[in-house]
């Protein structure tokens, strides 16, 4: 028996909107730790990792570890039927091939339930060890999304370079080149507006912008985004989900052929 009650149901709606274009089908894993997902895009180039910790749910019952295969587009269709202020409860019986989403309006005057068929999803799980990164950049998530969108109108790839001066995003294409430099800026009124650059050593890596633009669909989840870079590792683009966990995207840097 599985029963997860999420008072801030909009979080789950935002998570689905953030990942449904990158991943088609995925297994949601439920354990005592929480509700999680790890899935790669169809080309196995980008990976999404979601964790919603059990403590973040108002009610969390998961009698045994369970993996539920879902089509994310279909799940997003169902969650779109929930209001932004609704409480969302996920329910599944042991051995059932369906999951039920229950939506309660804040005043309890409207209660809906939607039952969705589960599916067998054959997925490859990767072990991602904790790593020390050469540089970690924290910046407003809307600023990062703006930069990725702007640069993708000029070129297909972005070079992210971190030095002690700050972080530089560069691209080039048929019509010209573009460079955006964000300097460390901690003298802001609100902490979420700060740009913080932690650098152990300078790093410069090239990434496909179309994946970055996909990752920025996570922007509504958090005011800030953290970009962790190392020369021998995939970049990690992380959106913290307040008091619950995180949505992380991984992408290997492009390399010379």
């Amino acid at each position: 028996m599985l029963e997860l009650r999420l008072v801030q149901g909009s979080l789950l709606k935002k998570v689905l909107e953030a990942i449904k274009d990158l991943v088609t089908d995925a297994n949601f894993d439920c354990s005592a730790t929480g509700f999680s997902l790890q899935a790669m895009d169809s080309s196995h180039v980008a990976l999404v990792s979601l964790l919603l910790r059990s403590e973040g749910f108002e009610h969390y019952r998961c009698d045994r570890n369970i993996s539920m295969g879902m089509n994310l587009n279909n799940m997003a269709k169902m969650l779109k039927c929930a209001g932004n202020d609704d409480i969302i409860t996920l329910k599944a019986d042991d051995g059932s091939d369906t999951v039920t989403f229950m939506f309660e309006s804040p005043t309890q005057d409207k209660i809906s339930d939607f039952e969705m068929k589960l599916m067998d999803v054959d997925s490859e799980h990767l072990g991602i060890p904790e790593a020390e990164y050469h540089a970690i950049v924290r910046m407003p998530s809307t600023e990062f999304a703006r930069i990725c969108k702007d640069l993708s109108s000029i070129g297909d790839t972005v070079v992210i370079s971190v030095t002690k001066e700050g972080v530089k995003f560069s691209t080039s294409g048929d019509i010209g080149t573009a460079n955006v430099v964000c300097r460390q800026n901690t003298t802001v009124d609100k902490p979420e507006d700060a740009t913080i650059v932690e650098m152990n050593e300078p790093v410069s890596l090239t990434f496909a912008l179309r994946y970055f633009n996909s990752f920025t669909k996570g922007t509504p989840l958090s005011n800030t985004v953290t970009i962790s870079l190392s020369s021998e590792l995939p970049v990690v683009v992380e959106y913290k989900i307040a008091e619950m966990g995180h949505l992380r995207f991984y992408l290997a840097p492009k390399i010379e052929e």
Binding site: H125, L126, G127, A252, E257
Partner: peptide, 14 residues
């Protein structure tokens, strides 16, 4: 534009 490696080139399957 460079070669795009697969993630399993970096992480092991579990």
């Amino acid at each position: 534009e460079g070669f795009q490696p697969l993630l399993k080139n970096y992480y092991n399957s579990i």
